[in-house]
């Protein structure tokens, strides 16, 4: 029965974690040549937590697995995907059916582009979504208010998705999440195409949602935007999390950052050193035995090429690196 107390203790520790992803691995079964199939591993040993009232930014380049993680949480992976590990929501392990039940209600996605909207449905109906009878007027009013806040003219309501310009579309998509009662909000790449003013507004709405007690997961490659509002930043690389850092760690030359990749990312910003490290993220079909960052790391030693480094907790953050203390 010692087991049970352990679980309880663990549960307490993660009391505020609304979403808890543990040791997640994702692979796709693909045809290689002709009729043979192989497995392509795209996410491996990934653990991450999103807490109520906090914004967690998931930062990574394209191909780092950040979008696939959201697909896994929402249960919208294609049928050739193979998922291992655990996804817990509010303390409960999610099955595919749970995901389908929760998405749109408890878990909302702010998609990247209008192609996620129904092309044959007017914008306002999609923003409001399905509501109970009697509440339509209230929702309509709320939607008008939000549209006004987002600088969307009243005629936008009656438009169809293809009539929206890029920036307008983005604002419409964000307003759908603002309208929804979801507790976990996943925002997929909200920043490209937004001008500074709209960007700051969008970010402040995300902050509002977090302040109201929702957990917000901000998926982005734009570390600057992430730094403006997030509480924690998870750095993705080649299908795994290399570091979860607090926003305060990003300052000066990045000496408080735990992982060399995070430091490199910070120093590559144009307002910092604009310094690029060499090399590429390993491709999905390249087999890496050791640390995924080994090739590009300046701190590497022999140990790093053998086996994936263990997760360490340092200074209130988490890092997967052999060479930090």
């Amino acid at each position: 029965m010692g087991n049970k107390t352990e679980i309880n203790a663990k549960g307490k520790e993660k009391a505020e974690a609304l979403l808890n992803v543990e040791d997640l691995s994702l692979s796709f079964i693909q045809y290689t040549s002709g009729l043979r199939q192989t497995e392509l591993k795209v996410i491996s040993n990934l653990s991450i937590q999103a807490n109520r009232g906090e914004i967690l930014a998931v930062v990574g380049s394209s191909g780092s697995g950040k979008s696939l993680l959201t697909h896994a949480i929402l249960g919208i992976l294609p049928s050739n995907a193979k998922l291992d590990g655990k996804i817990e929501y509010d303390g409960q392990v999610l099955t595919q059916k749970d995901k389908e039940d929760l998405r749109g209600k408890e878990i909302a996605l702010v998609p990247q582009s209008v192609t996620y909207l129904d092309p044959l449905m007017k914008v306002s109906n999609q923003v409001i979504g399905a509501v109970e009878k009697g509440k339509e007027d209230l929702m309509k009013k709320l939607q008008r208010e939000i549209f006004q806040q987002y600088n969307l003219k009243p005629e936008v309501e009656r438009m169809y998705p293809h009539e929206l310009s890029g920036g307008m579309a983005r604002r419409v998509l964000v307003s759908t999440a603002v309208m929804s009662p979801a507790k976990l909000i996943i925002v997929d790449e909200p920043t490209p195409g937004l001008d500074e003013k709209t960007l700051n507004e969008t970010l402040s709405y995300l902050k509002d949602m977090a302040n109201k007690g929702s957990a917000v997961m901000l998926i982005t490659h734009d570390i600057e935007a992430a730094l403006k509002i997030s509480d924690k930043i998870a750095v993705f690389y080649a299908g795994t999390v290399l570091e979860v850092a607090n926003v305060e760690d990003f300052k000066n030359d990045g000496e408080n950052l735990r992982h060399p990749y995070t430091q490199a990312l910070w120093n590559a910003l144009p307002q910092n050193k604009f310094q690029a490290i060499e090399g590429h993220q390993p491709m999905q079909d390249e087999v890496v035995d050791g640390c995924v960052f080994y090739e590009r790391c300046y701190k590497k030693n022999e140990l790093c090429s053998k086996g994936i480094p263990q997760i360490k907790k340092i200074n209130g953050g988490v890092v997967r690196c052999n060479n930090v203390s």
Binding site: I29, Y31, L35, E39
Partner: peptide, 19 residues
């Protein structure tokens, strides 16, 4: 392990992949 894993339940049709 991939191909083998996919082909575990081999009956007349089940063992074959879609292609």
């Amino acid at each position: 392990m991939s191909t083998a894993a996919v082909n575990v339940n081999r009956s007349l049709f089940k063992g074959l992949n879609l292609r």
